[in-house]
Each structure stands twice: as structure tokens, then as C-alpha cells.
Deep mutational scan, measured.
Amino acid sequence: MFKRLMMVALLVIAPLSAATAADQTNPYKLMDEAAQKTFDRLKNEQPQIRANPDYLRTIVDQELLPYVQVKYAGALVLGQYYKSATPAQREAYFAAFREYLKQAYGQALAMYHGQTYQIAPEQPLGDKTIVPIRVTIIDPNGRPPVRLDFQWRKNSQTGNWQAYDMIAEGVSMITTKQNEWGTLLRTKGIDGLTAQLKSISQQKITLEEKK
């Protein structure tokens, strides 16, 4: 169930391209415009997507990853294993993690069937560096609404905000991946996880038929 919630949630996290980005210092504006741009692209490019579902990787690479804190999220997933990894191991892992996100997020976007969304009203940021933004996803086919909290983090150097995690039903996506990959990290280390991520990233994206 959580895996499905995570995939549905990713439908609204794909941010804007650099040329049309919203105010990078306001995570609420980023979330709002990102959702609108993403849904528009999914709707307008269905012919290309249906002809070649792996085209979704391109959308992810162009529109999402430049505005997601990939390395920060990847380091959180590694936890204690990050500090013990060599620079070469980290570089290989982050490259594999990025390719994994292209496949995983692309597969999530393949679930698009006309969903709509509501974003919580903007709250004062103050001096906060981590801000959760509640998004409610509404399914046109009558499924119950899904309420999610996207975690946005302020870059201490640039002042810009980027998304790095999502919490559904009190469970963090980062925590879920830590639990899912924990045994592999304990037995085969970061190299074993890197190899698995490379394998997963090679899987073809498949479209979910409308139910």
C-alpha cells in the first residue's frame, strides 16, 4: 500500500525546468507551479508516452532531478554507511541512485490517469530550513484521497528550496528505503546496493492501464 502511495505522490513532485522555475526561495510556489507544469506535460505528451513509456525517463531527467536534492536524499538512505564509504564508492552510488530515480519516478508518472491535487495554504517560513507541505491527491475514479507531506529543505548556501522526502501515513519514503535496503547494505555494503540500483534502473517502464 505504501509503495502505491509513494508512486501516486511522485506525480506531483516533478519540479519546473530552470527556464520557467518559480521563486526558488518559496517552496509553496515551487510546489504549486511544479504540480501544474507536471500535470500539463503528462496530459499533453501522452502520444509520446504511450508510444514509448521510457520517454518518461527524459521527462524526469529534464523536469524533476535538477530540483530534487538527489545527493542529500541518497546520503540519508545510506545512513551510517555513508561515512564509511570511499569517495569513489559515493560517486558510483550517487550515479546509480540518480539512474534509479529516473526509472522509479518514471514508473510513478506512468500512473497518471487524470488525477488532480490540492496544496495546503502557504504558511510563514520564518527562519525554518525544513518545511512540510501537505498535498491532497484526488483520484477521478473514486479512490479515497491521498494526503501527503512533502519535505522541502532550504539550501544554506543559495537560499533555494528543494524537495527531498515524502511522508505518507506517518511513514517517510527515506525511512522506507532504509528499511528495504538495510539488509543488503549490511551483507554486501554500498557496492552491493550500487549494483542492485544499476540493475533496477535497467527495467523498462510500463504503463498502468486505467481501472
Rank of each mutant, 00 (worst) to 15 (best):
T175H: 04
Q24E: 13
F94M: 12
I200E: 09
L101D: 15
K154I: 15
P27C: 10
K71Q: 05
R4E: 06
A120M: 10
K43R: 10
V68Y: 02
P66G: 11
A88N: 10
A96C: 09
T20M: 11
V131E: 06
L193P: 10
L65I: 06
G159I: 06
Q46P: 05
P124A: 12
T176K: 00
Y117F: 12
N155L: 01
T25E: 12
I59K: 00
V146K: 02
Q89G: 06
L42C: 07
I205D: 13
M173H: 06
T86P: 08
V135I: 05
N155T: 01
L16S: 03
L5H: 01
Q202C: 12
T38G: 03
G126A: 12
I59S: 06
M31A: 02
E169L: 02
M1V: 02
W161M: 06
Q107P: 05
T183A: 09
R147S: 03
R134M: 02
N160G: 09
S201D: 13
R57M: 15
G159W: 09
E91L: 11
I174Y: 06
W152E: 00
K37R: 14
Q151W: 01
L148R: 01
G159P: 10
K204P: 12
L193R: 04
K71N: 05
Y117Q: 07
Q178R: 04
E99Y: 04
T86Y: 07
R98N: 10
R57I: 15
A75W: 00
T158W: 05
R41A: 08
Q36Y: 06
S84C: 12
G192V: 06
I137H: 01
S172P: 04
D23F: 13
E122N: 14
L56M: 15
E33D: 11
R147W: 02
D165R: 00
A110N: 15
T175G: 07
A92I: 09
E33I: 06
S84I: 11
L42P: 02
P140A: 14
S156I: 03
N160Q: 11
Q178F: 01
E122L: 09
F94G: 09
S199H: 15
Y164D: 01
T187M: 06
E180V: 04
K188V: 08
Q107E: 13
Q115A: 02
S17M: 15
H113P: 05
R57V: 15
L197S: 10
L184E: 14
Q123W: 09
A95S: 11
L185K: 15
P144Y: 12
D32F: 05
A34Y: 14
I13Y: 06
S17H: 06
L125W: 14
Y105I: 01
L207F: 15
P47N: 11
G182Y: 03
T116Y: 05
K102G: 14
A195D: 10
E91P: 03
G79Y: 00
I49W: 05
I119V: 14
F150N: 03
G192L: 05
T194R: 05
K198Q: 10
P144H: 06
G114D: 09
A92W: 08
D54T: 13
G159E: 13
Y105K: 01
V68P: 00
E99F: 14
W161V: 04
F150I: 03
K29V: 12
Q107D: 07
N179D: 07
Y112A: 05
M111T: 10
M1K: 01
K211P: 12
Q107S: 09
K3R: 03
I49Y: 06
Q62M: 07
N179S: 11
K211N: 10
V12L: 14
L65Y: 12
Q48M: 15
T86V: 06
V77C: 07
K3E: 02
M111A: 09
G74D: 02
P87K: 07
Q151E: 09
F150C: 07
T86C: 08
A110P: 08
Q107T: 13
R153T: 00
L5K: 01
S156L: 02
F97K: 04
N179Q: 05
A19I: 02
Q203I: 14
L42F: 15
L125Y: 09
S172N: 02
Y82D: 01
K211E: 09
A73R: 00
I174A: 14
D54F: 04
F94P: 04
V12M: 14
K37C: 04
V68R: 00
T86E: 13
L11N: 00
M31S: 01
Y112M: 03
F97V: 08
K71P: 05
E169Y: 00
N155F: 01
F39K: 01
G159S: 11
I138L: 09
L10V: 11
P145V: 04
K198P: 15
Q36W: 12
P87Y: 04
A35S: 13
T116L: 15
Y164P: 03
P132L: 12
K188A: 08
G142L: 10
E169A: 03
W181I: 15
E209W: 08
M111H: 03
Q115Y: 02
V171F: 04
E122F: 13
A21T: 11
D149A: 03
K83Y: 02
I190Y: 05
P124M: 15
E99H: 07
T206S: 10
Q103P: 15
L64W: 11
K43Y: 09
K177F: 13
V131W: 07
R57A: 13
K177Y: 07
M173Y: 05
A75H: 00
K211V: 07
L56H: 07
G114H: 11
L207D: 14
I133C: 12
M31Y: 08
G182R: 14
G106P: 14
V8L: 14
G192W: 03
T183I: 07
Q196L: 06
T175I: 15
P27E: 02
Y117M: 08
R90M: 03
N26A: 05
H113V: 10
M166L: 09
Q89I: 04
L197R: 02
T175M: 12
V171K: 00
A51W: 06
G170T: 00
Y81R: 07
F2K: 03
F39V: 01
K210N: 13
D61V: 04
M1R: 00
D127V: 10
A110C: 15
T158F: 07
Y55W: 07
K43G: 14
A73P: 06
K29H: 09
R153D: 01
L185G: 10
K154C: 15
I137G: 02
L30Y: 12
W181D: 14
N160S: 09
P144K: 08
V146N: 04
A108N: 04
M173G: 00
R153Y: 00
R147M: 02
Q151F: 05
R4T: 13
T116F: 15
R50Y: 05
A18Y: 10
Q103T: 14
K188S: 10
T58W: 06
Y67G: 05
L109E: 12
R98D: 14
R147V: 02
L148W: 01
L207T: 15
P121M: 12
E33F: 06
E180Y: 02
D40Q: 12
P87G: 07
Q162K: 09
K210S: 09
F97M: 09
M1I: 05
I119M: 05
S201G: 11
E169W: 01
F2A: 01
D54S: 08
Y117D: 04
L65F: 15
A75N: 00
D54G: 08
M31W: 06
K29M: 13
L184V: 08
K198N: 08
G114P: 04
R134C: 07
K43W: 10
Y117P: 03
G192I: 12
K211A: 11
Q202R: 09
P140G: 13
D149I: 05
N179L: 05
M166K: 01
G189A: 04
T206Y: 15
P66I: 03
T25L: 09
T175E: 03
I190T: 10
S201Q: 15
A14G: 11
D23I: 09
K198S: 09
D127Q: 05
N179F: 15
K29E: 15
E33N: 07
T38H: 03
S17P: 11
L16Q: 04
P121S: 12
T38L: 12
A21G: 10
A75T: 01
W181T: 15
L30T: 07
T58K: 07
I49N: 11
A9C: 14
Q151L: 05
P15Y: 13
G79E: 02
I133P: 00
L30M: 13
L56A: 07
A110D: 14
A19N: 01
A108I: 06
H113S: 06
L78R: 02
K211R: 10
L30C: 11
A85D: 04
F94Y: 14
Q36M: 15
L16W: 11
A195F: 10
E45W: 02
A19W: 04
K71H: 05
I174E: 10
R50L: 11
D61E: 12
M166H: 01
I137W: 15
Y72Q: 00
R186N: 02
V12G: 03
V70Q: 10
R90E: 02
Q89A: 12
K154N: 15
L76R: 02
V8E: 00
S156T: 09
D139P: 14
S172D: 04
S17A: 13
Q36S: 10
N26F: 10
T176G: 01
K102L: 10
